[in-house]
Design a protein around this nucleic acid. Structure first.
Length: 254
DNA sequence: ATGACTGAGCATCTCAGA
């Protein structure tokens, strides 16, 4: 089973990139974030490759989707606990006995105190949902753009200010509390030390200077983690023409 | 010490991203 996640920063700008990726990598399931369009404007290009799309869209901002080459069922289109969330940031699907959650976690740097409070409330609701699924003994993958750089090794020196919402202590504490429910950070399980970036800013030659961040993650419940084979970002995607600022992360489970 | 890209939209600037 191969599951990928990718913040595409506009699916309409990146439809060709995604098509090429699906042809080359052929994941069973691809979770997308930052579609920046409503469902009606989501490109139809992927059906011809055998991928069924379930889209949670929104005009201009946010938006997530699941593309499957295998049959899957949508369980939730909003984070349970935030049923009236006006922002399209959550999709939960089932492939047989496996539950897969795709998230676009709020950045938290805009909107002042309210914007950051929204990020923390979203993380609290995600914690509650993951705890509920683990209590039910579900096999679980939580993946997507978390907008959290968990440790100092996860961002290049100078790439973020110390009080950025991606690294503030309240943010990191909530990320750790998710792990402490019993989840395994798959990128770190495969590559325990050193920088492994998933994002490079468009500005100031960040890619050329390798001034990146690790903010896209795949977290695995225990039985899934026992079957972990590989998990890594595809950094070459960042060097294509007109790329997203994030690269895909591919997870392989035996 | 400072600046710096990209995308969407009731658009020629503002908001958001991270």
């Amino acid at each position: 089973m191969r599951i990928a996640t990718w913040n595409v920063n506009s699916i309409r700008q990146r439809a060709t990139h995604v098509t090429d990726y699906l042809k080359r990598v052929q994941p069973d399931l691809l979770l997308l974030q930052e579609l920046k369009c409503e469902e009606a404007a989501f490109p139809a290009d992927f059906a011809a490759l055998g991928y069924h799309a379930e889209v949670v869209g929104q005009k201009a901002y946010n938006g997530v989707a699941a593309l499957g080459a295998v049959p899957f069922e949508v369980l939730h289109r909003k984070l349970p606990g935030l049923p009236d969330d006006p922002q399209a940031r959550y999709i939960e699907v089932a492939i047989g006995k496996l539950t897969v959650i795709g998230i676009y976690l709020p950045n938290g740097n805009s909107g002042g105190d309210d914007g950051y409070a929204y990020k923390l409330a979203w993380m609290d609701a995600l914690h509650a949902r993951v705890a509920e699924l683990l209590d039910q003994d579900r096999d679980l993958v939580v993946t997507g753009d978390f907008n959290v750089a968990p440790e100092d090794v996860d961002y290049a020196k100078g790439a973020l200010s110390p009080n950025d919402a991606l690294v503030r202590p309240e943010t990191r504490a909530r990320y750790r509390s998710l792990l402490w429910l019993g989840l395994t950070d798959a990128i770190r399980a495969i590559n325990p030390t050193g920088p492994v970036y998933t994002f490079w800013d468009y500005q100031a030659g960040a890619r050329q200077r390798n001034a990146g961040l690790r903010i896209d993650h795949a977290l695995l419940s225990a039985r899934v983690a026992e079957r972990l084979v590989a998990c890594a970002p595809d950094s070459a995607e960042r060097d294509r023409v007109q790329p997203s600022d994030h690269v895909p992360v591919l997870l392989e489970i035996a």
